[in-house]
Nucleic acid binder design. Structure first.
Lengths: 224, 224
DNA sequence: CGTTAACTTGATAGCATTCAACTAGCGTGG
DNA sequence: CCACGCTAGTTGAATGCTATCAAGTTAACG
């Protein structure tokens, strides 16, 4: 058992946790709520790159660089813990397993990014939307936070459309179509998946990329 | 000085190096040429996720997982070296600096993915195209492979359009517009950037994400 | 009740796709 | 030698998905 001293902090919806350009000294662990990682474009508009939920490290990829090239903000009420990079590096050096776990986390993080590229690049708004909903549903399911096929996703359509790279207006129509087709049901902030298979079909969703089976090295090391 | 035993292999254009679903046991280091990382969709079409050039590790992110969730193929004649994961893990364990370098590489790899999401999500075909050209130009420049603002990019318009998530037809028109506007010049397989600033303006290109300055930890460790 | 944020719906415009045809270069085999 | 097929690039016309602009609804809240 490990005990790591961390500082904990509470945030409200839409509050910034890290700003682009911030000098980074700590990694952000999400205990409760949901946060987004985003980039700001020249014209001031933003693009949400990913959502992080309970148990995720929101800015792991910044461990290696001095300046953040993206921002992190709360998308609901959030409880976060901060682990200094220094501590992370020491832990990795002392405990091989932790280093591997961090590496694994980083790779899954990357894998989700790659999958998202496919999503935005090759699928229309309907598929994209379905895919995002399924990814979030699957991740919440792992946490045991899905009941009767329903989970809480306290994200406005405006923010969702930001992540999906479509306009809020169009997302709205898209969601209604998915609803009309009996695939999902929405009662903000709750989303229920009525037809997992149908939705997966629409989305082209194959959750391999989430690597739910866990890190190979970890298993290999501990199997014997 | 380190000596690592590797197996080296030659590939021709469009030859597959790793296939999706392959059991992975080695990491692929590119010595010469250019390769692409791609995913195959259900309908058989593909999406190119990234290009890797000389000096890159093409499938670093697979170090932690047993099965590839993407393929790697040659986009030109290629010389590649294969480093067994086993060796990588050992090196990381023995030499902190190497572990950090690998981590840094993985993070830059991820950062390029994130930037690409912004690209596809928020920019039109003209901007995307300009952005890809600038990214490749910048990476080749680091390698000293840009002369008189020109470099060799032996990738067909079909493959480029695959990466950009647009149709070959539309890419063609887009390239001609960029050419007509005096921003670039194309004489396959060579591309010349005639107006770096203008192109960067069109692309919204800010190369911070490439982290050309190198890993912080590395610098910190060796500065003293 | 007025205000605000979020959601919904309609009409129009524009960018990218799709389908199709045509050109150019290049290697192969009759 | 030339015909042929193949790959890559180019151009045109029509369709369609998504954005844009605009307006209206609903719910929460002081």
């Amino acid at each position: 058992m490990l005990a790591v001293r961390t500082t904990s902090k509470e945030y409200v919806n839409h509050q910034e946790i890290f700003r682009e350009g911030d000098d980074l000294s700590a990694c952000c662990f999400i205990e409760r709520g949901i946060v987004s990682r985003y980039k700001t474009l020249r014209d001031g508009s933003t693009q949400i790159l990913a959502f992080y939920i309970a148990g995720d490290l929101a800015n792991l990829s910044s461990t290696m660089v001095a300046i953040a090239d993206h921002g992190i903000r709360a998308q609901s009420d959030v409880t976060a813990h901060f682990v200094p990079h220094q501590v992370i590096m020491e832990l990795c050096a002392e405990h091989v397993v932790i280093g591997q776990a961090m590496g694994f986390d980083a790779m899954v993080d990357g894998a989700m990014a790659w999958e998202w590229i496919v999503n935005i690049g090759r699928r229309d708004s309907r598929s994209r939307t379905a895919h995002l909903l399924l990814e979030m549903a699957t991740r919440y399911k792992v946490l045991g936070m899905v009941r009767d096929d329903a989970f809480i996703l306290p994200i406005s359509q405006v923010d969702l459309s930001d992540a999906l790279g479509i306009t809020p207006v169009h997302l709205n129509r898209t969601l209604r179509r998915l609803r009309r087709d009996g695939l999902i049901d929405i009662a903000f902030p709750q989303i229920r998946i009525d037809d997992w298979e149908g939705l997966a079909e629409v989305a082209g969703f194959e959750p391999v990329y989430l690597h739910l089976e866990g890190p190979r090295q970890f298993l290999a090391t501990h199997a014997a």
